Amino acid sequence: MATGGRRGAAAAPLLVAVAALLLGAAGHLYPGEVCPGMDIRNNLTRLHELENCSVIEGHLQILLMFKTRPEDFRDLSFPKLIMITDYLLLFRVYGLESLKDLFPNLTVIRGSRLFFNYALVIFEMVHLKELGLYNLMNITRGSVRIEKNNELCYLATIDWSRILDSVEDNYIVLNKDDNEECGDICPGTAKGKTNCPATVINGQFVERCWTHSHCQKVCPTICKSHGCTAEGLCCHSECLGNCSQPDDPTKCVACRNFYLDGRCVETCPPPYYHFQDWRCVNFSFCQDLHHKCKNSRRQGCHQYVIHNNKCIPECPSGYTMNSSNLLCTPCLGPCPKVCHLLEGEKTIDSVTSAQELRGCTVINGSLIINIRGGNNLAAELEANLGLIEEISGYLKIRRSYALVSLSFFRKLRLIRGETLEIGNYSFYALDNQNLRQLWDWSKHNLTITQGKLFFHYNPKLCLSEIHKMEEVSGTKGRQERNDIALKTNGDQASCENELLKFSYIRTSFDKI
């Protein structure tokens, strides 16, 4: 039985969820670079991206490699990797027998973001014989899940209580170790020597080791999670996991709180800001991140802002960003909400898709409305799209047979046209069989910064309504002859009103 693990408890099935942008060198404390989270699957090609990484700022997932063999891993080693800020997950990587050479110096898994409450997941690794993470000293947050690894031993010899604050939620089941077939031998045991430290858990006094050649490092209890030197002297209180010299914040392997210019500090002093819960960055760093993602459509890219001495992905609820200094300031009234469309555009074809934009005031991208039916549609669209004030790209209304009016965009005031449909149009209306009105132009103002209007096959939309939009939106004169079809717009509506004058002759039985 794995020490510190839980057996036999019912657990939810383990679901495996399925960018080499360097964020800056980590400095003297770390020998390499800070790398983003990685999802490495199918083959070993991307694994080489770990070569210079000291910190993975995010998670590391290595999974679904069915053609790899043990010899493929023999020359692979990433000794610079010290810390993973989120979680480490391995799933069905064939041929991998140990992690001792792959990650010989991995010391800390912070667990800032977890995989279903777990910071370390080893699942269905069919050839893994031992973990071998002999320098792993601290899992700051989260638990361990090690399950269905039929060859995995050296679990009962690990004292997880020396690595985690609590072992109650560890789930370590259905491994070879369960069948008591392992016969784990710690260093020196074969020669009758006791080389590794022994600890007591559940009444068992057991030597602690990761492999037959690597003991588990056990520091004096007084050192807590700070770690200790090879001689057993406690590291500085700002260290986490390990250090090369005692009581020196510049000799830590990793930091308990924050890293700044080669030393570990309790908090980031001005003019620095907390970033990702582990390091200090200056304003320029946060500003660069903001600008890199301002026009990016890459998933996970955030326009970072500053709030409460932190550089964070977005302002919290009730705050909006001051564009001059990136500071989050309290909103006066309802907060603006910028919604970034991942692929640059979004099609609204149902109430469900409209709900995804609920509360958005600025759309960074283009909207395509293609709704053919739905219950209580006008009210639903207004509830979900009615706060949109600005669209950076274009607005396209296409084959939306259920629409009679666009009044559900009740606050839309600006279409920038930074991206144009077919390279020309910022407003595009095609084949809307029941569209009769755009907006009530006596109450609604709309500016279209650039781009043209396109109207074709809107049989109940009168040309007068379209011409009014040209005047109000500032697009009059931009359109070419064929942009607004004269014969297919309003051709099934009563669009022309003329005053009919009647004269009559009164007659009676005795007068003409």
Rank of each mutant, 00 (worst) to 15 (best):
P313D: 07
I222N: 07
L164M: 08
C335M: 05
G142L: 01
S213Y: 15
K100C: 11
L106S: 00
E130W: 12
H214G: 05
T320E: 13
E207V: 05
N242I: 06
H127D: 06
N43G: 08
N150F: 05
M65S: 14
H48C: 05
L289D: 03
C335Y: 03
Y30I: 02
C252I: 00
C280W: 00
L128M: 06
V265N: 02
S112W: 14
F285I: 04
K310R: 11
D72M: 11
N138A: 12
I139H: 01
C153A: 02
G262T: 05
P70I: 04
V173M: 12
H274R: 05
G318H: 09
P70F: 05
N257R: 08
V218E: 13
R162H: 08
F275R: 02
D169M: 13
H28L: 09
P246L: 02
L60Y: 00
I146T: 01
D178S: 05
D277M: 14
H214A: 15
G183W: 06
D261P: 09
V167L: 05
N117V: 06
C328R: 01
S324F: 02
C243Q: 01
Q245F: 13
Y171P: 02
F283E: 12
L240G: 12
V108S: 06
F258N: 05
E49I: 14
S112T: 05
G262H: 14
A156T: 05
G241P: 02
S244W: 14
T199F: 13
Q245W: 03
K129G: 05
W210N: 06
K176R: 04
G58L: 00
C328A: 02
H290R: 03
T68M: 03
N150S: 06
N43S: 06
S143H: 09
V265D: 03
H302E: 07
P330Y: 15
S323C: 07
T45R: 12
N105S: 09
M137I: 03
G192P: 05
L89T: 13
L120M: 11
C219V: 03
D184V: 05
C280V: 01
V34G: 04
N135M: 13
G183N: 02
L88P: 00
K129F: 13
G37P: 13
N117W: 03
R145D: 03
G333L: 04
L96N: 02
R256E: 08
K251V: 05
K217H: 02
Y171W: 10
E97S: 07
G183H: 11
H307P: 01
G203R: 11
N325G: 15
N135P: 04
N105Y: 10
C255N: 00
S296T: 11
K292S: 13
V265A: 08
T189P: 06
C264S: 01
C182P: 05
S225F: 11
N170Q: 07
L289M: 07
G227K: 12
N322A: 13
A254S: 11
L136N: 00
R110M: 08
M38D: 03
V305T: 07
R141A: 05
C331W: 15
D72C: 12
G32N: 13
T157D: 06
C264K: 00
I201E: 12
A156Q: 11
G188T: 05
C264H: 00
D277E: 14
N149G: 04
I139A: 02
F66V: 11
S143Y: 07
C293L: 04
N43R: 08
S284V: 09
Q204G: 01
A119D: 00
F91V: 07
D75Q: 10
I122V: 08
E33W: 14
R92L: 13
F205V: 07
C228N: 05
S244Q: 14
L155I: 13
D169V: 07
C315E: 01
S112F: 08
A198R: 14
L164F: 00
P336S: 06
G142S: 02
V93P: 00
D75K: 13
L96I: 09
M38R: 02
D75E: 09
P70Y: 03
T267S: 10
C301Y: 15
H48N: 12
D288M: 12
M137L: 07
C243M: 00
N309T: 12
N242G: 12
C255E: 00
D39A: 09
I185P: 15
F283L: 07
C186S: 03
N150I: 13
I109G: 00
T157H: 10
G132F: 00
Q303A: 08
L155W: 03
L152T: 02
C280S: 00
G232C: 11
N295E: 07
E33S: 11
N117C: 05
P246A: 02
E314F: 01
A156M: 13
N257Q: 14
F103L: 04
R145I: 10
L152C: 15
S225C: 11
V121T: 07
K217L: 12
R298P: 06
I62T: 00
H59C: 09
S225T: 12
Y94Q: 15
S237L: 06
D248K: 13
G241T: 07
S323I: 10
L174C: 07
L240S: 12
T140S: 08
Q245K: 12
R263M: 11
I201P: 13
I158W: 04
G203N: 14
L44F: 12
N170Y: 05
M83F: 09
Q245A: 14
I139K: 00
L164T: 10
N308A: 09
T194S: 09
R92H: 05
V305E: 04
K217T: 07
V34Y: 04
L60A: 01
D177C: 07
P197F: 05
L120C: 06
L327T: 03
I158K: 02
E180M: 10
S166G: 01
K224Y: 13
E231W: 03
P316W: 03
F283Q: 02
F115T: 13
L332Y: 02
A156V: 07
R46L: 05
D261G: 04
G262P: 06
N195W: 10
F285R: 02
Q276K: 09
R297L: 09
N117Y: 07
S237I: 09
G183R: 14
A190L: 09
T229H: 03
P220M: 06
C215I: 03
R256Y: 10
L50V: 10
L155Q: 05
C209T: 02
Q204Y: 10
N202L: 05
P336L: 10
I306G: 13
K224F: 10
V281P: 00
C255G: 00
G227R: 02
S284R: 07
C209N: 04
M65P: 01
V108K: 02
M65T: 03
E97V: 12
N105P: 00
F78R: 02
C186A: 05
T320N: 10
I56V: 05
L128Q: 03
G227N: 02
L90A: 07
V144A: 08
F116L: 09
H28Q: 07
N150E: 10
V281K: 04
T68H: 12
C186Y: 02
E49F: 12
N43E: 10
R297C: 09
H302V: 10
C331E: 02
T140L: 09
F258Q: 04
V34A: 12
C335F: 05
W278I: 15
P70D: 15
N135W: 05
M65K: 04
T45H: 06
G183K: 13
T199I: 06
V206P: 13
Y118K: 05
G203I: 04
L164N: 05
V144T: 03
Q216M: 08
S112D: 15
L60C: 04
A198W: 10
Y154T: 05
I185N: 14
C215Q: 01
N175W: 09
I82V: 07
G188I: 14
N325T: 04
P334K: 15
C239K: 00
P334G: 08
G32H: 04
T157M: 04
C196L: 06
E51C: 15
L81Q: 00
P36R: 05
N175Q: 09
S143K: 06
C252S: 00
T250S: 10
G132D: 03
P104S: 01
N202K: 13
R263H: 06
K217C: 12
Y273F: 07
L90P: 00
N257P: 00
G203M: 14
C315W: 02
V305L: 08
D178Q: 07
R74H: 15
P79V: 05
L60G: 00
T229K: 11
D247S: 05
F285H: 09
F258I: 03
C196D: 00
F275W: 08
T189A: 08
L155R: 04
P269V: 06
D165L: 10
S244T: 03
I185R: 03
K67Q: 00
G183T: 06
I122S: 05
C234H: 01
G203K: 11
L136C: 04
P330T: 07
D39K: 13
R208S: 10
C328Q: 02
L120Y: 00
T211L: 05
L120E: 00
T194R: 04
L327Y: 15
C264R: 00
C286T: 03
L131Y: 00
E33I: 07
N195D: 12
